[in-house]
């Protein structure tokens, strides 16, 4: 499925620009990292693709569908979203919450796969034994894993993960990275934002770098995570060194300079 922004931008009330008109095509079946400082427009870019925001300029498309003209159920068959603004949920079990992700498949032939999809998703984040626990009794990190499972259970070709690691500890982040890599292995297109550039350089194939409401780079991660691009994005002197043998997993070391 082709995921594209067509001169797509957003101005909020009072003419404040949240993202300048941007055109890009995501690499299908690959992991694309969204990198940039706080307030650069990362969430806006992801929200324009997911349909959370209506663009004031241009449009976003998923395959043949223009995002803002697509019904919410169809849209949810095409993309799943893990956003940062989740409400606190009381009383429902982990299983209930993950099962909500199957909403878009109600009344379709895929409905028969509901139980299987939910079980697989819970197992993939290591929460299979917590299915009956009430969600409000979990820790922040466990909850984030449940919501990751929810997004996986939705089983859409595109996954949009907006800072899914914000509440995760070291172990949780490692788990997240292997889950994301596993999703890539099953053919999903993944758009993921994070402040941890080092980790993104290890798992992502492509990068979208935004700074000051503008796309400043889009291309292979090795060309994006360089001293020049990252320094420009963060408006600071930053040194990037790639380590690791060619052919093996390579990783960038990002350090601030005086």
């Amino acid at each position: 499925m082709k995921v594209e922004l067509h001169a797509c931008g957003l101005k909020s009330k009072g003419d404040r620009v949240r993202l300048n008109p941007t055109s890009l095509t995501l690499a299908s079946g690959q992991i694309t990292a969204v990198i940039g400082p706080n307030g650069a427009g990362k969430s806006t870019l992801m929200g324009l693709i997911s349909g959370a925001f209506k663009p004031t300029h241009g449009y976003a498309s998923l395959g043949d569908h223009i995002v803002t003209e697509t019904r919410s159920q169809k849209l949810a068959q095409l993309r799943a979203v893990l956003s940062q603004d989740l409400a606190q949920t009381y009383g429902f079990s982990v299983y209930d919450v993950v099962s909500w992700a199957r909403t878009p498949w109600r009344g379709t032939e895929h409905q028969s796969k509901d139980a299987q999809a939910i079980e697989r998703a819970l197992s993939s984040v290591g929460m299979q034994n917590a299915a009956e626990r009430p969600i409000h009794q979990l820790s922040g990190g466990e909850r984030q894993r449940v919501h990751l499972a929810r997004v996986i259970a939705q089983d859409s070709p595109l996954l949009i993960l907006d800072e899914p690691d914000s509440d995760l500890d070291l172990v949780g982040r490692n788990l997240l990275d292997s889950v994301v890599t596993g999703l890539f292995g099953s053919g999903k297109t993944i758009l993921i934002s994070s402040h941890d550039v080092n980790r993104m350089s290890r798992i992502a194939h492509q990068a979208v770098v935004v700074s000051q409401q503008k796309l400043i780079f889009h291309g292979p991660i090795q060309q994006a995570v360089t001293s020049e691009v990252i320094s420009e994005a963060f408006q600071s002197k930053i040194r990037v060194q790639w380590v690791g043998q060619p052919g093996a997993v390579q990783e960038a070391k990002v350090t601030m300079m005086e």
Binding site: A52, R71, S72, A76, Q77
Partner: peptide
């Protein structure tokens, strides 16, 4: 936003 993302109008 998450309800919408899950396909709820």
């Amino acid at each position: 936003s998450a309800a919408f993302a899950s396909g709820v109008p």
